[in-house]
Design a protein around this nucleic acid. Structure first.
Length: 103
DNA sequence: AAACTGACTGTTA
DNA sequence: GTAACAGCCAGTT
């Protein structure tokens, strides 16, 4: 890692800006970061977040309005969203029309 | 340097 | 609504 403006740093900054109680998608973050085709890499950045990071990584879901994680990880993300008032089904479904972060 | 990986997405059927 | 597929590209090995 360097001191330059890396892709990872741009992702961190954008995720940090997602408002409380709102969600956005991997693809939208990629677009805001200037790499509209790098949605998959956004997931990669979040996967490798340092332990103890304060970033609201759990506000990022996929374009279908679903949590992309599975198993226990899905449940952790679901609980984090429920804790800020975002309705999430047991399967990890969120209503994008209601909770999407609009810039 | 080359190969591999995958918290994704758009298209097609 | 589903499923398969190809492209995608930063990080990791």
């Amino acid at each position: 890692m360097t001191e330059q403006d890396t892709f990872q740093q741009r992702i961190w900054q954008i995720v940090a800006a997602i408002p409380y109680g709102k969600v956005t998608t991997y693809g939208e973050i990629a677009r805001l970061a200037g790499s509209p085709r790098a949605a998959r890499q956004v997931g990669g950045v979040l996967k490798r977040l340092p332990r103890g990071s304060k970033l609201p990584w759990y506000r990022v879901i996929n374009r279908m309005g679903e949590i992309s994680l599975t198993g226990d990880n899905l449940d952790r993300q679901r609980q984090a969203l429920l804790a800020e008032g975002v309705e999430v089904s047991a399967e990890g479904r969120v209503s994008l029309s209601r909770y999407r972060w609009e810039i």
